[in-house]
Design a protein around this nucleic acid. Structure first.
Length: 490
RNA sequence: GCUCGUAUAGUGUAGUGGCCCAUCAUGAAGGACUCUCAUUCCUUCGACCCGGGUUCAAAUCCCGGUACGAGCACCA
């Protein structure tokens, strides 16, 4: 008997993993709030935490005060956003800048055991050595000398740029990236203090990512690292360090680069600049691919989880259309979204409703009568229609009646459906309040004036505007279209 | 330039030598249901980068090519 092939559900098994003893980590730089891409690390790592009943560490890699300076408000925001996305908080939070003594101690150990050295060559000079596979003059220095130079790094004799601590690997390694890589450097924290008040200018010798991350992973007992494949060489560098220390490196998996068609590339630093320049209203500007921005326009955590889980952890570099995310969001949102009638650019028509019912009643959600009923009272003869529908001639006013439109007048034909004429959404003249539908399109925020049926859905509710799409109720009562349309009929 | 990695339908993804004329989702087209251009359901369309090799047997292993991406920062 042939067994039909099936697609694996969810994420693949972790190598060398036993339930209950898996330790994972997600390590962002708090130089801004989380963005769409960060969600991948959160979703994947947290799924594995659930699968293996493991521990997930949120680690702030905030060891650069100049190139990518941390943002004080980002720490709390990132933890909150991560919790929102994962549906559960991290098991442990680690802040690198507050664990400097561990990094210093390990640097010292590295020097005293002779597998590290203090190098005073300029970056350019060392680059020459790296490409030519030659040893720099500092490399043969003995332990005593290295300890002395280490002291000079710590006490300020050496200034920023004067010296780094390198891990002794092998200058003849095939991969140039691995040759005696830098582990710690000096930062002028007087000029660029760390934003955390208890850190500030206290330290001048700071670890670089590869060293800090490697030491911290070991200290925290991390068993599995899942990260971008841009960090593949980091794994190799860190493995060399682990060998020196006699540690075992965690299992590692990588994912490739993801681009979203509509967004192209973006970076936290670039967004920060544009926000400061006033091009965006803030980190939660709905045009921004930040978690805050996406959440603001009604993209749910469940949609993000579904999206990233479906992409999995392949090393392929991919480009995905936003519609993929939207389809996940539709699935997450539709079943609960109350229906509302919103008429864009309303046009008033007279309706000769001589025989009409005066009260209409129909469900808030067609698939869920238990959500209650909508109740429209018809006490005048005016109705509102979208201009596009008002020229269609024979239409059916949804949940009410078939009408014929001629010369800006609508004539009631039948209360029951008499044929297959198109059904349009509409509003009774008195049962409509002014409203605005906001949306993003092509990097702009646009507003469409219109009328909405009265409702009391609280701020934040994701509703479905019939025949238009899902929208979120905003603080000011306006609606924000969740899924920007490619073919917008504004 | 050196090093590393990846290549399955339009877009993603499953598949680790025979159950593969290749999975699932999304998309497109058609249809059913429905007083929404929503949801749900059904049908159809559509792919193993190229060339060699190993093998009785290759999407799956090996070699070469090509394409794309990443690293070679005193950034993360």
């Amino acid at each position: 008997m042939k067994v039909k092939q099936t697609k694996r559900e969810g994420l693949p098994e972790l190598k060398n993993a036993t339930k209950g003893s898996v330790v994972l980590r997600f390590a962002p730089n708090p130089n801004g709030p989380l963005s769409f891409g960060h969600a991948r690390g959160l979703v994947i790592n947290s799924s594995y935490r659930e699968m293996y009943d493991g521990v997930l560490i949120l680690r702030f890699d905030d060891t650069d005060t100049k190139v990518k300076p941390p943002m004080m408000s980002a720490y709390a925001q990132i933890e909150q956003e991560a919790t929102w996305l994962m549906g559960r908080g991290p098991d442990r939070v680690v802040i690198a800048s507050e664990r400097m003594e561990h990094y210093h101690q390990h640097a010292k150990e590295m020097l005293s055991q002779g597998f590290g050295y203090v190098c005073t060559c300029s970056a350019e000079a060392f680059r020459e050595h790296r490409v030519n596979k030659t040893e720099c003059p500092c490399r043969p220095n003995n332990v005593a000398e290295n300890m002395e130079r280490w002291a000079s790094m710590l006490n300020g004799t050496y200034q920023q740029g004067d010296a780094v601590v390198r891990v002794k690997t092998d200058m003849k390694l095939k991969n140039p990236a691995l040759r005696d890589w830098p582990a710690l450097r000096i930062q002028d924290t007087k000029a660029h203090p760390h934003p955390r008040p208890n850190v500030g200018s206290r330290h001048t010798v700071w670890p670089l990512l590869d060293f800090q991350s490697a030491v911290e992973d070991h200290l925290q007992g991390v068993t599995h690292i899942i990260r971008g494949k841009d960090l593949m060489d980091s794994t190799r560098k860190q493995t060399l360090l682990y060998e020196h220390f006699g540690w075992t490196y965690p299992e590692t998996m990588y994912w490739g680069r993801v681009k979203v068609h509509e967004w192209g590339g973006f970076s936290t630093s670039a967004m920060r600049k544009n926000i400061e320049a006033g091009e965006f209203t803030g980190w939660d500007d709905p045009r921004l691919p930040t978690l805050a921005g996406l959440a603001r326009r009604g993209i749910t955590a469940a949609a993000l989880r579904g999206f990233w889980t479906e992409l999995g952890i392949t090393q392929k570099d991919i480009s995905v259309p936003l519609s993929t995310l939207y389809s996940h969001n539709t699935k997450a949102v539709d079943d609960q979204a109350p229906r509302l009638s919103f008429v864009r650019h309303p046009q008033r028509l007279d309706l000769n409703a001589h025989d009409a019912a005066t009260v209409l009643q129909f469900p808030i959600h067609p698939n869920h009568p238990d959500q209650g009923q909508r109740r429209w009272e018809l006490n005048t003869t005016g109705i509102w229609l979208e201009p596009e529908d008002a020229i269609k001639g024979d239409v059916r006013l949804k949940e009410y009646a078939d009408v014929r439109i001629e010369n800006s007048k609508a004539a009631l034909v039948s209360l029951d459906r008499s044929d297959r004429r198109p059904i349009v959404h509409w509003l009774p003249e008195q049962h409509a309040v002014e409203a605005v539908l906001m949306s993003t399109s092509g990097g702009e925020i646009t507003a469409i004036e219109g009328l909405i049926e009265p409702h009391n859905h609280p701020v934040g509710t994701i509703v479905q505007l019939e025949r238009i799409g899902y929208a979120k109720v905003m603080e000011d009562g306006s609606f924000f279209l969740c899924h920007e349309r490619t073919t917008e009929s504004v």
